[in-house]
Every structure is written in C-alpha cells, then in structure tokens.
C-alpha cells in the first residue's frame, strides 16, 4: 500500500498519520508539501492530516482547500483514488467539495479534546471493513469546529446510501445526545463519498494505534485500508 500525507502550513498530525500508515503497510508514507502540483505516481491512498492549516483563517480548511496540491488530490479522488481526511483534513475535504456538508463551531463552544466512542455504522467501506460485524471504537477527538451539518435531503441521502461511517455513541454503542461532543446532526462523526473511497472524520484514529499509548482501536482504519488495497 503506497500512501502520501499532504502537509499544509499548520498541519500538526502529519507525522502521526505517516507513522500509522507505516505501521500497517511496512513502507514509509511520502510527505507532500501543499505547494506541489502533482502527487507521486502509483499512490493508493492520499491522506489529509489534522491541525490548523493556515491558522484556520477565513474558515477552517478554506485556504488549504485552494492550495495547488488540492487540484491533484481532487483529480486523484475523481479517478477512484482513496482519500482519508482527519479532523482539519475532513474540513479541507468539505471545503474542496469532495464530501457534502459543513463543519461549524462546536455547539457547546468548547474545544473538545478527549476520547470518544464511535459506533461503526457501516463496514462496507475500505476504511471500516476490519470491524467485520461493526461495533464500538474508542478514538480521541480534538477540535473546536466539528459540528457537522447537512441539509435534510442530503442527510436522508447519506443515511439511505449508508454513507455515514461513524457516529458518536456511549461506551455501549447507544447513539445519544449525551454522547454527542459537538452537536453534529445525527451524531455524525465521519462520512463517505458516493463511491465510498473518500472518508472524512473528525476523530483521530492515528492517535490511538499503539497499545503503548493506551489503545489501538484507531489502527483498524489503517488495517481496513490495507485489507482493501493490498494485493492478495
């Protein structure tokens, strides 16, 4: 599995993300600076990391989405490539139009930084297939603008096409208002593109990939990709 991580000024999860990929694939991820206009050839996955690209100026992810490299990332996605956007990377994917909706300021106005539980809503994606029968994952969030919003007709479509990948839930998997850290509509924590090859999610799976750090539920996102992409 050949991966690349895009680096914007203000990205701060790029190294963690590269390490998570290397851990499952055994090969280093290529770091690609935002001013590049082309991606390395033969890539399987492009990832957009968390952080505060361009200081969150204008809107979170808005300036990064207009970076030179994002044209190449959009073409990669439109050509069927796999793209993973985490936290600020999710915001960039929305601003690019590769995923629908928007992320607003958290309903409680607080920056939320803690582990949350996620219900795996579909295992039918290259990012979630390792959960097999679904289940609950514990993965940290760290964001101020994670309040996901789409209009009602798009929301129906996301549900109808099983494109909600993760929802915020309690430890037992109950999707409740109390378990919603940011006010996201329908507790949505991650969504898929129509071809299921682009995933944007607010939680940080790359931060919980190693038992030495207190858990490894996050590794399943990367193991799923490996399972979907590694030559049999």
């Amino acid at each position: 599995m050949k991966t690349a991580v895009i680096v914007f000024p203000g990205s701060n999860c790029d190294r963690d993300l590269a390490r998570a990929f290397e851990r499952v694939s055994g090969r280093p991820s290529t770091m690609v600076w935002h001013k590049e206009t082309a991606l390395p050839s033969g890539l399987d996955v492009v990832a957009l990391p968390g952080g505060f690209s361009f200081g969150d100026y204008l809107r979170c992810g808005a300036i990064a989405a207009r970076s030179p490299i994002m044209r190449a990332v959009a073409e990669f996605a439109q050509g069927g490539g796999h793209v993973l956007g985490i936290c600020n990377g999710f915001q960039v994917l929305l601003e690019t139009g590769l995923l629908p909706g928007a992320l607003l300021r958290n309903a409680g106005l607080n920056f939320v930084c803690r582990d949350v539980h996620l219900n795996v809503e579909t295992t039918d994606s290259p990012f979630t297939n390792a959960w097999h029968n679904g289940g609950v994952a514990r993965i940290p969030v760290a964001h101020h603008d994670g309040n996901y919003l789409v209009d009602d007709s798009l929301l129906d479509r996301l549900h109808g096409e099983s494109r909600v990948a993760f929802t915020y839930c309690d430890a037992l998997g109950n999707v409740t208002d109390e378990a919603n850290p940011n006010g996201s509509v329908s507790n949505i924590a991650g969504v898929l593109s129509p071809n299921r090859r682009v995933l944007g999610m607010m939680p940080h799976p790359e931060r919980l990939c190693d038992p030495a750090l207190g858990g490894s539920d996050g590794a399943k996102v990367f193991e799923s990709l490996l399972g979907a992409l590694a030559p049999a």
């Binding site: 629908p100 928007a102 607003l104």
Partner: peptide, 9 residues
C-alpha cells in the same frame, strides 16, 4: 462563490 463564503452554510 469560490472562496470568501461557504455557500453550504
């Protein structure tokens, strides 16, 4: 349309 506003919201 292209940058200053996010016309979704």
């Amino acid at each position: 349309e292209k940058l200053l506003a996010n016309t979704v919201i």
